[in-house]
Simulated assay, not measured.
Amino acid sequence: MKSTLKDPEPLLETQWPADPVKPRKAGWGGLKRRLAPYGFVSPTVILMFVLMLVPIVMVIGYSFMNNVIMTKHPKFVGLDNYVTILTDSVFHTALANTLAFTFASVAAHIVLGLLFAMLLNSPLLGTRFKALFRAVYVLPWLFTVAIIAVLWRLLLDPNGVINFLLMNAGIIDSKIEWLSSPGTALFAVTFINIWAGYPFYMVSILAGLQGIPKDLYEAATVDGANNFQRFLHVTLPQLKPIIISMAMLDLIWTSQQFALIWMTTGGGPINVTEMLSTYTYKLAFSQYQFSLASAAAVVILLLSMILAFFYIRHQKARD
């Protein structure tokens, strides 16, 4: 007979809990990983500190002293330099000229940039004509400020091409000194700045136009909208963020324009084209009033910071 007894089961080994893994203490390797991002940005931070923060602090300090650099032991004079600047009639003229020059340039840049961008985006033009017009319209953007200043000084010379064409067309009877006459100098430099700056708007708005979905135009057409209504209710709302951003940047750039003014009129004649930038430059390097120039520079910095604040605020709202 077979035995009914089962073989005894093998004894299982006792399973003791494994020792818990102890976390390694963050050593030099962990510290390097944490400091690596700061190491990458440190060269930029150092450059900004040396080239921006230190000069700004020095200029602010100079603005509270009597004539620094020219005086061996300058003394603290408080807000006297600011009072002198803010009560100077030439400063008032420079501020008014800067405002007129800036707002006229920005407004014209927006209008011309939008018109030329829509022209280049129009299906009525062939590919070859679009390429030709793009090359012609973007040409002012390729020139440096020095080339632009020399070019327009030659064109606007009393014996230049502009007077020649206008006299032959019967528009004027005598030669006009566009950059030397108090009645036309500010208009002339504003026109030059408009001509030099509109391609930036044109290229940016053209990119925005090409990014607008065609479905929006098709839906507006189905709803019975004409060309003007499509432009008003589809194109402009889609381009609004781009236009506002560019306008704020242009306000900052144009209000600080120096090279074009200096190389065309030098702020003259009779302070007609004097800007805040040329006014500050003349205080420092023509009159050697470095403390007054520092005070004027601080005022310009505050005005620029106000514009920069609204620009950053708009960008955050847009994001």
Rank of each mutant, 00 (worst) to 15 (best):
T144H: 04
L99A: 12
T144S: 14
L156M: 10
A293R: 06
T184H: 09
T144L: 07
W195N: 01
A26G: 06
A108T: 04
G29I: 01
S245N: 13
L232A: 15
A247M: 15
G39M: 12
R318M: 13
P17K: 07
L99C: 12
A207G: 15
M246K: 02
H109M: 08
T87N: 11
I85R: 02
T265M: 05
M1Q: 04
G266N: 03
L283W: 07
V21Q: 09
I252V: 15
Y137S: 00
K130F: 02
D215L: 13
W141C: 09
I300M: 15
L307W: 06
K282N: 08
S255A: 10
A185H: 02
W262F: 15
T98A: 12
P237G: 06
T184L: 06
A104N: 09
W152D: 00
A284D: 06
L139S: 09
V57D: 02
I171Q: 05
R33S: 07
F200K: 07
A284P: 02
F310A: 08
P23F: 06
M48P: 06
K22S: 06
G27F: 01
W262I: 11
I46Q: 07
L239E: 02
E177H: 09
I147D: 03
L5W: 09
D19S: 09
A188L: 02
I148R: 14
G268Q: 04
V59P: 02
I270C: 12
A149K: 02
D7H: 09
D319I: 11
R230V: 07
S286M: 11
R318L: 13
F231H: 10
L209H: 06
G211K: 10
D157P: 00
T71H: 07
A259F: 07
L302E: 02
E13K: 10
P199F: 01
N163G: 03
T235L: 10
K316Y: 08
L53H: 02
G29D: 03
I312P: 00
I306Q: 04
L179E: 00
I110T: 07
S291P: 03
R33N: 05
V298I: 15
G197Q: 03
P10Y: 13
D223G: 10
D173H: 14
F191K: 04
T265N: 01
M70A: 13
K25D: 01
G126V: 11
R313M: 08
F143W: 06
I85H: 00
A196R: 14
A96Q: 12
T280G: 05
N159D: 13
D215H: 14
K316L: 10
A295Q: 05
A196P: 00
Y62E: 05
L112Y: 03
T87W: 03
I300Q: 08
R313H: 13
Y201G: 01
L119Q: 05
I46F: 11
V59Y: 07
Y217D: 09
L216I: 04
Q15N: 13
T254K: 10
L51P: 01
D173G: 08
F309D: 04
L142W: 10
F103T: 11
L112C: 14
Y137G: 00
S105W: 01
A220S: 13
I110P: 04
H92Q: 12
K2L: 14
F143V: 10
T235V: 14
V138S: 11
